[in-house]
Amino acid sequence: MTVEQIASRLAEYCRNEKFTEAQAELYADDAVSIEPYSTPDFEKETKGLAALKEKDQKFNAMVESRFGTTVSTPLIAGNSFCFMLTMDVKMKGRDRGKISELCVYTVKDGKIIAEQFFM
Rank of each mutant, 00 (worst) to 15 (best):
A77D: 13
S72C: 04
T86E: 07
R96F: 03
L10N: 04
S33K: 00
M87R: 08
D88L: 04
F81R: 00
T69F: 01
G97H: 13
I113V: 15
F59R: 12
Y13S: 05
E4S: 13
A28I: 09
Y37M: 15
L10P: 00
G78E: 13
T69Y: 00
Q57G: 08
A51M: 09
T86D: 02
F117L: 10
N79V: 10
E17S: 13
F81S: 00
E12T: 11
A61H: 09
T46Q: 02
K108E: 15
A114M: 06
K92L: 07
T39D: 05
Y37G: 11
Y105R: 09
F81L: 01
E17C: 05
K108R: 14
P40V: 14
T73C: 02
I113D: 09
S38K: 14
S72T: 11
V63G: 10
M62W: 04
T2E: 15
T20N: 08
K111Q: 13
V3E: 12
A61I: 06
V63M: 04
C14I: 01
M119K: 08
M119I: 13
K44H: 13
V89Y: 07
K47Q: 09
L85Y: 00
E21R: 03
L102P: 03
K53R: 14
D88W: 09
I99L: 12
A31M: 12
F59S: 14
A114F: 02
V104W: 00
T20G: 04
S8N: 13
A51K: 14
K44P: 15
T73G: 03
S8T: 12
V3M: 15
G48T: 14
R15V: 09
L52N: 11
T69G: 02
V32K: 03
M1E: 14
G110F: 12
T2V: 05
L85D: 01
C103T: 03
F42K: 14
P40S: 06
E25R: 09
D29P: 05
A7E: 06
E101M: 04
Q23I: 10
Q116K: 07
S72L: 05
N79S: 14
V107K: 15
P74L: 09
M84G: 02
R15F: 10
S72A: 03
E4F: 06
F19N: 07
K111N: 10
F67P: 08
